[in-house]
Design a protein around this nucleic acid. Sequence first.
DNA 1: TTCTTCATGTAATTAGTTACATGATTGA
DNA 2: TCAATCATGTAACTAATTACATGAAGAA
Lengths: 208, 208
Amino acid sequence: MSRPGRLTTTSYAVLGLIAIKPFSTYELTAQMDRSFYRIWPRSRSKLYEEPKKLVAHGLAVATRERVGKRPRTVYSITAAGRAALAEWLQVPGSGPALEFEQILKITFVENGTKDNALAQLAAARAWAVEQNEVNRDVGRAYARGEGLFQERAAINMIGGAFLTDFYALVARWADWATELVQDWPDSPSDAVLPPGVADEVVKRADWS
Amino acid sequence: MSRPGRLTTTSYAVLGLIAIKPFSTYELTAQMDRSFYRIWPRSRSKLYEEPKKLVAHGLAVATRERVGKRPRTVYSITAAGRAALAEWLQVPGSGPALEFEQILKITFVENGTKDNALAQLAAARAWAVEQNEVNRDVGRAYARGEGLFQERAAINMIGGAFLTDFYALVARWADWATELVQDWPDSPSDAVLPPGVADEVVKRADWS
DNA sequence: TTCTTCATGTAATTAGTTACATGATTGA
DNA sequence: TCAATCATGTAACTAATTACATGAAGAA
């Protein structure tokens, strides 16, 4: 009776995809890129494993097809799968978790130079610009009615708007920080906070 | 000569901490919470392993002390360690990675109810309020000159400001999304995008 | 003196990534 | 017909988490 591994958030993410329509594993990886990769990043190879778990739990069924002499597997959701999804949606998800290596490096920049800090900030801003351009183009296409799965537009907008604002935040923050750091002395450990800056930032936290 | 594992970003984060001053492993876990946990979250047990790797690489030295009859280990950085840190600061870090399960659930909420979506949004807002209150209190204490390691204030402000703005973003986004979702029909799969919303969001992406 | 919280770790397990391998299709 | 790219996976490895265990110190 081979214990199938426990279902993880990633399992449900895959289950959510095949709830839209059946997908082959390869198609799943493509869909991940477009649907949840930016809020739930996982490697491609995961998407070859997870569906097997779903099948073991009876939440999906696998259909073997062949393309030429090459086999491929298409996964479809079962009734039990839909029920499991609905239940999963009822349990509160966890709040956002952030990994931000560029800030981490700035946190320890006293062991390096002011230029190191400026470079990390520039990289962060460039990252935001790049992400934003992709995001904006997809959004525009969608607004023109060109996107895939248009019937999901209202739902997708919720997450899309968050990312839009997030990229803008990263860029604005990088600009703000760059101005501050430019006034630092060469050695970051000698940097002092200009008067008023701390208060101004604290004031931005005054909404809750 | 037992191959020590490769150094990861987490290794350097720990190295950055002991560069401030020597810490015992337990103190390291406490420092992590206050310094980098929110931008580089790792479990406590990691902080018992990583220093051993640093020692194996010659970047730190371990001093065995005892408290009563109980031993403890204090780690200090070496000259090679400082050099390694400085070098690490020169390589560009990766951009922010986000994991946001609440949005993930909203993405697949067509398999559930409108209330499911509203509940996820409420949870997200509550999360932001909670994080913000802690963050704001720490910031205020710092502004009054009460925080630990005040000499690092200018540096810490950079990352602190990002988090401040991030929490505000999450809350404002949740409010915005809640208003939208409240107008949905009961079944999320029937939701349609009100005219103008898509354009308005796309416009917010128009800065790069 | 007992309970709780602080302090200090190890062991077992797993989720996830990186690297590899190769068939099918298309266009130059 | 050759190269490039799309499609389809497996295997090996490891970073990270969860669960467990227990001594010290202070409070009640």
